[in-house]
Design a protein around this nucleic acid. Structure first.
Lengths: 294, 294
DNA sequence: TTGTAAGCGTTATCAT
DNA sequence: ATGATAACGCTTACAA
């Protein structure tokens, strides 16, 4: 076909408002050119940058990205509406993901360890982060340390808690007290109530995510207990809100954008048939006046 | 078909891991059962509740919801990957939306006025909100009032600014000063610099969204100027972060969840062929110590 | 009730 | 290079 006829056809196509039909194309080509990311819900401060990172990589590689949430949407993967999935979503059971992987669907998990040739892991270095936080509290001289966990069964919570226990085992001079949380503000608030109830002198609190640290913080307002003075607080995630807290909340930081970008890259690679290794996202400690010296 | 044979077939289907193919179904039925919502980007605190509200309604009505961002994704509408779209996305031009509407695609817009039989509007009552804020500043005795606008061409900014001007026209005793902003933190910071430069006594500032108010606030940290004392600040949106600012940021509130839910409902109605009116989301004033009395 | 066939809008294959 | 045709996997309409 000459360039001339080509442009003529394109002109007529535009003239007639021709638009290709995605379903037909997908049916025939047996691929949609769309990647899906699954979130437990749309709330939560962590997601913005992560999704932007994913989008950037996807679009640069010729893929569209769609964001889904809720059990109903799961079928998009087995029904082949999407070519592959990134999972950051508790509502997916391991069993379900393995079933899809067995049927040759390609998956990247961000929230669990799961071994399968069609599943790649891009995980936070939770253990390093939690150890960093726990050791920071010790270094600052704290000897009574509360640790507020996430919900039962959360991978992040389990990993972080494990690392804390490793540190605790080596630092027997400190008293370590575990409080069951939920990764939500309400869990932080409840933890604050317990800590206040048991208060008998300076205490440190490691909330296993920032969201709970904020709830904790909030519950302390107006009680007379001051953060960084009576009660010392550190979180995990470095969500944006922490930048605007006075005194600054100490926390664990990592690049959410890079996390998303890497996840998308890995997914696209395994879709192209490349063999890839699991990846790890590194974390750093952010010190803050919310943790004082004793 | 008897119930017995039905369940037999289902059993065999499960046995063979049969999963229907979404593309084929969509192609045949000429509808995908998926609604799309388009966002300018995935950042921004406004979206969480809004999307959850949309998801709830969509799922309850038998639809899936997907979230998209970026120009690439626009084609999902004309290519019929989705049955309809909710638009909260600057990157869609009016012209483009009208073109799709002309081709009989159903659209709900949340960020502009657009008249077309296939387009429904679910808009914030921006004017009422901005008037509420401006009048609140006057009531509190302020007579020097800065107004920090959003980016050029933003519908929300234009509407809010119009309402402020209406109030200003009736309150000539006050001095009204407009500062060009961008709805981002950086715009608030720049505005703060100007206000500090020109400072000669108590001033009030109406940032046309909370994001800029936060930037403004942040820029004031460590300058000696205190919010609610030297400089009085009010925002718009009541994003979650404002709950954690001390003193509390005055702002304009509305239910983001209801906004999303209503948008989804309207879209589903017009897809069902129902005739619907445009809708309005009402707003309320939230007072806060960020605005003191003079 | 059951089975058969046509067709949705593309892309890919095969002759011409 | 060009044009005709089959096939993707499903739904539906109609025939048996």
């Amino acid at each position: 076909m000459t360039d001339e006829t080509r442009s003529k056809i394109l002109a007529v196509a535009k003239e007639l408002n021709y638009v290709p039909n995605a379903a037909a194309r997908t049916l025939k080509k047996r691929e949609s050119g769309i990647l899906g990311v699954f979130l437990t819900d749309f709330k939560g401060d962590v997601y913005g940058d992560l999704l932007d990172g994913m989008k950037e990589v996807c679009n640069g590689r010729g893929y569209d990205l769609i964001v889904c949430s809720g059990k109903r949407a799961h079928r998009m993967l087995p029904e082949r509406m999407i070519d592959g999935a990134v999972i950051l979503d508790q509502t997916f059971k391991n069993e379900e993901l393995l079933k899809y992987a067995d049927r040759n669907h390609k998956i990247v998990v961000l929230d669990r360890e799961l071994d399968h040739p069609n599943i790649n892991q891009v995980l936070l270095d939770n253990k390093a982060g939690a150890a960093l936080a726990a050791e920071y509290l010790l270094e600052q001289g704290h000897r009574k340390i509360y640790v507020v966990s996430g919900p039962e069964g959360s991978f992040d919570s389990t990993q972080r808690m494990k690392a804390v226990k490793m540190v605790a085992d080596r630092a027997r001079e400190a008293e370590w007290i575990e409080i069951a949380g939920d990764f939500k503000k309400s869990g932080g608030e409840r933890a604050a109530e317990q800590v206040i109830r048991e208060y008998s002198g300076p205490a440190a609190v490691f909330c296993l995510n920032d969201e709970m640290a904020i709830g904790f913080w909030n519950r302390l307002e107006g009680t007379g207990y001051r953060i960084g003075e009576h009660i010392h607080l550190i979180g995990f995630d470095n969500i944006e809100l922490t930048n605007y807290m006075q005194p600054r909340l100490a926390t664990i930081n990592y690049s959410k954008r890079k996390w998303g970008a890497l996840a998308a890259e890995q997914l696209i690679k395994i879709l192209a048939g490349e063999q890839v290794e699991h990846e790890r996202i590194y974390v750093t400690l952010i010190k803050g006046e919310s943790v004082g010296k004793i």
